[in-house]
Amino acid sequence: MKTEGETVAAETAAILEGILKRYRDDDGNIISILQDVQDVFGYIREDAVNWFSKKLDIPASRFFGVVTFYAQFHLRPRGKNIVSVCCGTACHVKGGSKIAEQVKKELHLNSEGETTNDKRFTFEVVRCVGACSIAPVVLVNSKVYGDMTVDSTSKLIKKLKEGAGAKK
């Protein structure tokens, strides 16, 4: 049976109302809404999308199309810390892929986008963060680590695992 989209909890609704208000005040678009949603929840929640879809009379498919188009958006919760290895050109020629291999190894992950079981770390590959002159670089959340080697990468991850330097 066709039913109305599921409803969201009251506190969630309050958050979403806030985002909606910002959107209306600032002639935003659905990308800005989704960026706000991801900021709050860490990923794009289906119920939030349905909520906005109904409020704004924009089909949920449109949201989903945008979410899956842009690399910034995630459909699943990510780890507390995002370890990103830059694979831009400069980093590539200076061995970025080896750094990426090392991060995977240290975090016991198989591929890009995966999150550790304890939800502490997500490993991602990014396409150039514009820090080419200190290539290769690793980002932990928004902090940039430059001139990385396989060794320094191992050390960095070990340090993060021990809890130092990890932040949200």
């Binding site: 999308v49 089909p59 949920a60 498919s61 989903f64 199309g65 899956t68 459909l75």
Partner: peptide
């Protein structure tokens, strides 16, 4: 009800989620 989803070679016509 449907829209383009994902991109490049993996793009496909998607329903929401």
């Amino acid at each position: 009800a449907i829209d383009f989803g994902y991109r490049g070679f993996s793009s496909k016509i998607c329903t929401p989620f």
